[in-house]
Amino acid sequence: MRSLIYFFLILFTFSCTQDSSFLISGNSSGTLSGSYATMLPIDGFLYVINETDIFTYDIADTESPILVDEQNVGFEIESMYHHEGVLFVGSSEALHIFVIQENGIPLRKSETVYNFDNLEEWGSCDPVVADDTYAYVTLRSSTQEGFGCNAVFRVVNELRIYNIENLQEPELLTIRQMDFPKGLAITGDYLFVCEGNLGVKLFDVSDRMDPIEIWSDEGFETFDIILKDGLMMVVGPDAIRQYDYTDINNIEYLTAIEF
């Protein structure tokens, strides 16, 4: 009997350890994805987005996915992020939030339209990451108002932070102008953002109303990022760069993976 208790204790401890490390990544299967992911395996289900819909596959047998649900999300669906049973789906026009029900099927909680002063938006790439309380979105797009000679073009490059304590009504806290924001990753009060051809930046977001840039590494192109227990992997079109961020005040460059 006692050994059985020990067994469960160990099992419990193990699962806790796993959970805490996954807090960093926002995934729960040992698979860490960048913020542009469009497929996520979560607790026996595989979630796949295409341009408009989210599909739920039962992958209890990983080699034989069974479609259990398909639902429309919106237009230009681009990325998906998971945190503690909540799915965040980024599209060019809105942040869509779903809660994963016990049967694995996502239930829509909200759709927060980005609303660029009623300007038409196009050509964007807008990933999202989140923790228990906040969602972080980068918006990068061109907008056009009017047509022909009267057209006014505007380029949007923003980091937005939303309070998501109420998943049904995310509240916009702040908009910070960026240069060329792409993929991002959050760990505690620290937010890493890929800045296109300006490399990667780190923000102290302990004050969510006022993110402060505290570190950057520039001079190369980046678009996405994965954090794994103190190891940061930054992807650009021609290389993967790795850093040790165990000491957030002393981030150490490790290597650039090039063939």
């Binding site: 860490l32 994805s33 960048g34 542009y36 992997m233 650009g236 021609d238 993976i257």
Partner: peptide, 20 residues
């Protein structure tokens, strides 16, 4: 076999293995 990289896209990490 491993080959020279072209234009990279999405990345996934499983354990100590990176897939890109």
């Amino acid at each position: 076999p491993a080959r020279e990289i072209g234009e990279l896209g999405k990345i996934v990490n499983v354990g100590n293995t990176l897939y890109i």
